[in-house]
Amino acid sequence: MSFWFFCVCVIMLAVIGVYCLLYTYSLMRALIGIEILIKAVTLLIIAVGYFSQHLALAQSLVITLIVMEVVIMVVAAGIVLGLHHYQKDLDIRKLRELKG
C-alpha cells in the first residue's frame, strides 16, 4: 500500500467530517463531525510516521493527541449539556442570540 492510498483515505474521512459539520443541525453531531476530522488527521500522522520511518515518533504524537482530544470532547460535551438545559433540545439554529 502506498502513501497515496492513505492520503485518499484521509481526504475521504476529512470530507465526511466537514460534510457532517456543515449539514447538521444538531450540536452533538457537530462534535461527532469534529471527532471524524480528528480521526482523519490521526490516520495521517500514523501514515506519515510509517512511510518516513519515524513510527516511534508518530506513535508518541498520536497517544498525546488522543489524550488531548478526549479532554476537549469532555469539555465540549459539558457545554452542549449546559445548552440543552436552557433550550431543551440540541438545535444548532437556536444559537442565534449573539449577533451584530
Binding site: L21, I38, V41, L44, L65, A76, G82, L83
Partner: peptide, 23 residues
C-alpha cells in the same frame, strides 16, 4: 445561556483549527 453559546462557537472553531494544525 449566552456564555455557553459563545463557548460552544469557540470550541467548534478552535477544534477545527486544531485539526488543521495537526495536519
Amino acid at each position: 445561556r449566552d456564555a455557553l453559546e459563545g463557548a460552544f462557537k469557540y470550541v467548534i472553531f478552535s477544534s477545527f483549527a486544531t485539526v488543521l494544525m495537526l495536519a
